[in-house]
Design a protein around this nucleic acid. Structure first.
Length: 211
DNA sequence: AGTGCGATTGACT
DNA sequence: GTCAATCGCACTA
């Protein structure tokens, strides 16, 4: 399969390339940084919805806060796939979380996608979210999966291949990437495993964390 | 078979 | 700022 196979016609005539697995950083933290500025694409019956990734979190090897910490289970098995696969789970019985698997096959780790800057299909996103404000459509891990209608059916899918859900290359050069502690993790307040686009209006989290 | 809880969100004081 | 909603799943027995 050559690069031409990853070329798909975009909804506005602009073609987009999917990410290439061999180019993904194996290391979870490096992948979390790498994914900032990349584009998440969701293909729905009504049309294409996409957004630029502006916030991620790394759940690294041996991480007590990671879902793979106690080994493989029916729920978290996607975290053990080779890099670039989706791990989707339900949090608090309400919100779905989307992760990108990392590390070598057999090792459970991943990157949580926490916020998107909407690009294409914003009317569809507004319908899915039931809100109008652009900066609220995909600001937060549960909000972005709602906007893109991502659910457990997409768990285990290959994000490096065009399909219902996949990752595309940067639209254009992004700005400075900043780091902070992770959100919602009460322990582990020393490691800076959250990455975000400095100054982006589409980033979640309290202002105190985002400066 | 029963129990406790969370990588969140939205509504409300 | 506080707080309830909601449920799959991991853990205990």
């Amino acid at each position: 399969m050559g690069r031409a196979d990853a070329l798909i016609p975009g909804p506005r005539g602009n073609d987009r390339l999917s990410l290439v697995r061999s180019e993904l950083p194996i290391d979870t933290t490096a992948l979390a940084r790498y994914l900032i500025g990349k584009v998440l694409v969701r293909e729905l019956p009504e049309g294409v919805v996409s957004g630029r990734i502006v916030e991620t979190e790394a759940y690294i090897i041996g991480d007590a806060a990671g879902h793979a910490y106690r080994g493989m289970t029916p729920r978290n098995r996607s975290l053990f796939l080779e890099p670039g696969h989706a791990y989707v789970y339900l949090a608090y019985g309400i919100s779905r979380m989307l992760n990108v698997s990392s590390e070598m096959p057999g090792i459970g780790a991943g990157v949580l996608i926490r916020a998107l800057e909407p690009l294409e299909g914003t009317p569809i996103m507004r319908l899915n979210r039931g809100t109008e404000r652009l900066c609220d459509l995909a600001r937060g891990p549960g909000r972005l999966t709602a906007a893109l209608r991502v659910d457990r059916c997409l768990d285990g899918i290959d994000l490096c291949r065009e399909g219902p859900l996949w990752l595309g290359r940067d639209d254009h050069r992004s700005g400075e990437i900043a780091q902070s502690i992770r959100i919602g993790i009460s322990h582990d307040t020393h490691r800076l495993l959250r990455f975000y686009l400095q100054g982006s209006l589409f980033v979640s989290g309290p202002r105190s964390l985002n400066r």
